[in-house]
């Protein structure tokens, strides 16, 4: 059996876990804004401090949050190195043949790397403390005003919810099909890239056929359960804005203000 969740929800009994998912979503977006508002090196200390404080509040092991940057580390290094060599502003501080490194480039690279790392850690903090279902509900709730411009908010949320439900089922199904084709001598590991791509066909076709069959049956089941779209529908799960949510939003707003003030004073 396999458990698959987005951003690996990390269950714990903390203030952050109990916060309204909408508040968490807003705070995360504001946090990302804060990261990009930063102009001086100094302000990153505020942002990092805010993040560490939130991690402690969420009762998450720091290691678990740090681990989330692992998949993007290569991307961070790659862009940093590229920028280091090709950024054309500032004084040259080191030269070797045609390679020239400028002081502005060093600064720019460091900023970029720190921003990316903070961004990933910040958004991971949200997925680590929020169940995927809550998150889809929150997105639906926050997008509600878009209903006025006929944006299918409810449908979008329903699609996300169904996707979350069927990902583990389809992964199991894929696993089963892979085993069944292996039993028929299929080889997915050898050969060049084209041979391997071709070897996927006996997995992909049955998986597609099965997804369509499931989709058909699900549509019937939803119809049979009186589904008629978003209109006239009520919602069982409701959000409650609490004191913690207000405080959370206030503190992230303060963070942005602090950064802007610092920017103004220093530059």
């Amino acid at each position: 059996m396999r458990e698959f969740t987005f951003g690996q929800y990390y269950p714990a009994n903390s203030v952050v876990h109990k916060m309204d998912a909408r508040a968490k979503l807003i705070i995360t977006i504001a946090f990302i804004v804060a990261i990009f508002v930063v102009e001086g090196f100094f302000s990153f200390i505020y942002v990092a401090g805010f993040l560490v404080f939130a991690i402690l509040l969420a009762k998450l092991p720091i290691r678990a949050v740090v681990k989330t940057i692992k998949p993007i580390l290569i991307l961070v290094l790659f862009t940093a190195v590229l920028n280091l060599f090709f950024y054309q502003k500032g004084e040259i501080i080191w030269e070797f043949g045609f390679i020239k490194i400028r002081d502005e480039a060093v600064r720019f690279c460091l900023y970029m790397a720190i921003r990316l790392i903070l961004l990933v850690m910040g958004s991971s903090l949200m997925t680590l403390t929020t169940q995927p279902v809550e998150l889809t509900d929150a997105i639906e709730s926050l997008l509600t005003p878009l209903k006025w411009v006929r944006f299918p908010v409810h449908e979008l949320a329903l699609i996300m919810s169904i996707a979350l439900r069927y990902i583990p089922i389809l992964m199991d199904e894929a696993d089963r099909i892979i085993r069944a084709q292996k039993a028929r001598g299929a080889d997915f590991e050898s050969g060049n890239i084209f041979a391997r791509a071709k070897a996927m066909i006996p997995i992909l076709i049955p998986l597609l056929v099965s997804s369509f069959r499931r989709a058909n049956e699900l549509a019937d089941a939803m119809d049979a359960r009186c589904y008629s779209g978003g209109a006239n529908r009520t919602k069982f799960k409701q959000f409650h804005i609490g004191l913690n949510d207000v405080m959370g939003v206030m503190s992230v707003v303060s963070l942005i203000m602090l950064i802007i003030t610092t920017n103004a004073v220093l530059f």
Binding site: R176, P202, I203, I205, P206, V209
Partner: peptide, 12 residues
């Protein structure tokens, strides 16, 4: 040879 349960789901 191994015939899985519902083997028709592996046809492609």
């Amino acid at each position: 040879g191994m015939v899985f349960q519902y083997p028709e789901y592996q046809l492609f």
